[in-house]
Design a protein around this nucleic acid. Structure first.
Lengths: 327, 327
DNA sequence: CTGAAAGCGCTAACAA
DNA sequence: TTGTTAGCGCTTTCAG
């Protein structure tokens, strides 16, 4: 293993100079920096992450707490995780994976053992039990999702309220007047998941129907909607696995899409595009959320100020599932 | 932060005794051990991972290299990753996430910087470019998938060959005589993905059709199968996203399942169970693979011998998609 | 069975 | 602009 003293000897400087040349934490003459860089390259030196950590520096690791519970859509989480890793790597960091099964335990452990420099916490609920811990921690964190009391925290999310409004606007412009929101499984709302609540806010004037994700739930929901809202001509669905089953269910009940019913979704683009009927949708920009979260964290690590909440504006893409209100 | 010296003082012993009491690396009297444990508990001590690393001990971190490419099914990877994290935690380890976008880079970095003690490498190809590196590394590793030359490596996988045979046996017992395997997208076979090749081996007597994953590919494949294999009454599908589209395609072409065509799948249980027609399937035991991989790694870390290849036996579950050969 | 002491490789005062 | 020197918190010789 090649260590910093090897590089120092090779470059004809002291170890601390190598350290500083690499970290940029104090001015180094161009000449010296060049020699150090050359030595690093020739010897293939990489600074030992653990030793650096012990010496009080940064570990170069971000921890990512990912949710593992029903009502959370695996592909979105995965895409998000990948974008976090990619962005972290671009900043020279690695990513430690924490599952939410551990809950606060994992966060506490990572903080106390100094395993990570900072935290990305996904799937934040309105009243999240982890918030007090996060606030008290010496490590900076970024939350995906906006809790009820975001004071002292840094949050990023899609602006779900605006996303709902955007869908309704789109449907309204097409002439639709009775629109329902079919949401995530009931437990998501019961748990007061922040994103679901905020999406609902775009729908104050409309009906909201939480729904499970299997084919039976889809069929039951379609029947109930047609019964309770006879004038219904538009739906907004915020429940990824339910999309295809619900399309099927409506069609089996004789509703053609988009001739009889306009169908919009809040979901990742690939899901909307590859549904049986390509869906007009507001995308959940998982990848951008991950990248943003990491950027914010890097800024916090460097001591720069960051906004308390970053809400990404929704963008609606029209596809084949929406059309004018039937005569 | 509570450190080992605090515990030592509290327990009335030396720091090294605390260290040994915790690691078990040398005999400690019961009395002393008890006092140390009490002090640890009272003070809420956790050994600082980075400092331990610097001092030459273990970092307590496993690195997991996950694939991110077409032909790899996200839910399986995710389930696998979760089971790895869970199993690792059960052994007191954390998990560092490496995306395969980094390829050998990530593995090299983790090894050289001492970030992780050991590696789990998913999605191993028959001729995997990472193998030489893995063989040369001082860190132990476990591969998911069996390469062409597994010498000096440790591998775990579903026995895909046996899985294919099991499906064919099942169909054969139901009277079917002409059976086709519809596989993963062509690039998987081109890349000589180990699992796909081995699955194919169960089918030496049958036809093998690689296939893409979209609805058009499904339709084209169904048409081609019925054209090229007029006597076809059974299929084995090893291509998760293709399952539903292929079912649809066959039915649109007038083939009822299972009356006209028996349909078996090699895929995770939840996928098989929630398909439009519940599918007779051999499960890909992602979770068990992850757990096994971690167990093997822990054993290797402790210096215990481990088998070169662990092939999990396939288990077939009958559901609604298979039946006797039509008259 | 236990303690004292010497580092692990690196960083960051403190000095020049 | 650079070097010298003390540690970081822990592990592990070496010595009892």
């Amino acid at each position: 293993m090649v260590k910093i003293t090897d590089v120092a000897r090779r470059a004809g400087v002291s170890p601390s100079t190598v350290s500083y040349a690499l970290s940029g934490k104090r001015p180094i003459s161009d000449e010296t920096r060049r020699r150090v860089q050359a030595a690093v390259r020739e010897l293939g030196y990489r600074t030992h992450a653990r030793a650096r950590g012990a010496a009080g520096g940064r570990s170069g690791v971000l921890a990512l707490a990912v949710p593992m519970r029903s009502g959370v859509h695996v592909p979105v989480v995965t895409q998000f995780a990948v974008s976090v890793v990619t962005a972290a790597r671009a900043h020279g960091h690695d990513v430690l994976l924490l599952t939410q099964g551990e809950g606060e335990k994992g966060i506490g452990r990572v903080a106390e053992t100094g395993l990570a420099d900072a935290l990305v916490v996904m799937d934040v609920q309105l009243q999240d039990p982890r918030l007090p811990l996060l606030r008290s921690l010496p490590l900076p964190s970024v939350l995906i999702g906006v809790p009820a009391e975001p004071d002292g925290l840094t949050c990023v999310d899609l602006d779900f309220g605006a996303a709902g409004e955007l869908c309704v606007d789109h449907l309204a412009r097409l002439g639709h007047r009775t629109v329902a929101l079919v949401g995530s499984p009931p437990e998501v709302y019961v748990r007061r998941t922040a994103f679901a609540r905020r999406l609902v806010q775009g729908f104050t004037a409309s009906a909201v129907y939480p729904c499970g994700t299997d084919r039976d739930a889809a069929r039951a929901m379609a029947e109930r909607l047609l019964r309770e809202q006879p004038a219904l001509t538009g739906v907004v669905v915020h429940n990824e696995p339910l999309l295809d089953p619900l399309i099927d269910a409506f069609e089996e009940l004789g509703m053609r899409i988009p001739e009889d019913l306009s169908f919009t979704a809040v979901c990742p683009t690939p899901v909307a595009a590859s549904a049986r009927i390509p869906l007009t949708s507001v995308t959940v920009p998982s990848a951008e959320l991950g990248t943003r979260a990491v950027h914010l964290l890097i800024r916090k690590l460097s001591g720069a100020p960051v906004p308390q909440a970053t809400l990404l504006p929704p963008r609606l893409t029209e596809r084949a599932s929406t059309g004018p209100r039937p005569a």
